[in-house]
Design a protein around this nucleic acid. Structure first.
Lengths: 187, 187
DNA sequence: GTTCGGGCGTGACAAATATCACAATTATAA
DNA sequence: TTATAATTGTGATATTTGTCACGCCCGAAC
């Protein structure tokens, strides 16, 4: 478990064992069952999560009660309701397990402490944040330039594994189309 | 001009005059005329830009030659083709002036130098990147949950000034609808 | 001034997508 | 096992949005 986190961080910044121990001391280890909530809409967002194994969905519920998948989070992904996490406000979204999930969580306090006291991790977080920003912008670009079928194919190419692990209705929601339309596209 | 940048940074991290001089030495001052390109698709992306005054559009041209507005950048906004900038690859997008624009630019080399040598700026960049990520996610959420009319109203509420400075056709492109549909929505 | 092109609105029609309804199949739980 | 719920596909139809065509207005360039 620890090793997964260490390897993940070392993809961007090399760490000695002592340094990693220091880093690790800022995280908590968590196990959650399918359908468990890591973050609930309306509650305080205490943590940001690194997924060791399993699968999460970040969802937004609109006024009509419809659920929208803002993001998935698989192995090696970081996820939270970042807006609520960083500004310490109530969650607008929920983070829920699609599969049993093992993760490391870090509080905002520890995130800031780690960033301040250990510049390697500040750099790591900066690079992660930049990647996240770029990924989001690519998704926006996909909405701007592509119709449902093209978005479907782009997702299939980018994350084929999702199609084996996630119900089609959730994929449809992530793509911004109805379940019926997605079904027609894929046949 | 300098003062705009200094104030902007000090919203997140306080700086002494000496510190700011050091920061400023990593930037170049640039003036561009309406319709000038700061970044051209296919070329290397040398800089990230802080807009002092003026207005930019970040655009993507698809295979059919249609232009899509990925983002605007006004006073106090940072903009670039971040993907190409950070990975030092060719630009997939172009950054062009909608109005005469004054900006400070920073090379990736200086961005990294500044981050490494001056942790306050690393923190500043991290916070900016996090904000950017959150803003992008909100835009995605808008695509997922809202139809064209609702997106139009959300943009009107969030950035009313754009409606006074940007042609409707570009706003339509940013919203992901045709010019004609936007016209019908707003009447 | 005149000309020219960008920006904008709008009608008519086509295409994409959503919604509703229903059935079949598969997974889950009691 | 049994029954109960979740998942998926598909037809019929409604709604949203795009595309093409046209005309008007206004500001910039000559």
């Amino acid at each position: 478990m620890k090793e997964k986190l260490k390897e993940h961080i070392e993809n961007l910044v090399p760490l000695t064992d002592d340094e990693f121990s220091f880093v690790l001391s800022h995280f908590s280890f968590e196990k959650h069952k399918k359908n468990d909530f890591l973050i609930r809409e309306g509650e305080n967002v205490k943590h940001c999560y690194f997924v060791v194994c399993g699968l999460l969905k970040l969802i937004y519920n609109d006024k009509e009660g419809k659920q929208h998948v803002v993001s998935f989070a698989m192995e090696d992904w970081w996820e939270s309701d970042f807006s609520a996490y960083f500004t310490q406000t109530k969650a607008k979204m929920s983070l829920q397990c699609i599969e049993d999930t093992i993760s490391f969580s870090i509080s905002l306090k520890n995130y800031k402490k780690l960033s301040t006291e250990f510049s390697k991790m500040e750099r790591f977080f900066l690079e992660k944040s930049n990647s996240g920003h770029i990924a989001s912008q690519n998704r926006i670009l996909s909405f701007l330039t592509s119709n449902a079928k093209e978005r479907y194919e782009q997702l299939l190419k980018l994350h084929p594994i999702l199609f084996q692990r996630v119900p089609k209705s959730l994929l449809a929601s992530y793509l911004g189309v109805s379940r019926e339309t997605l079904s027609r596209l894929s046949s």
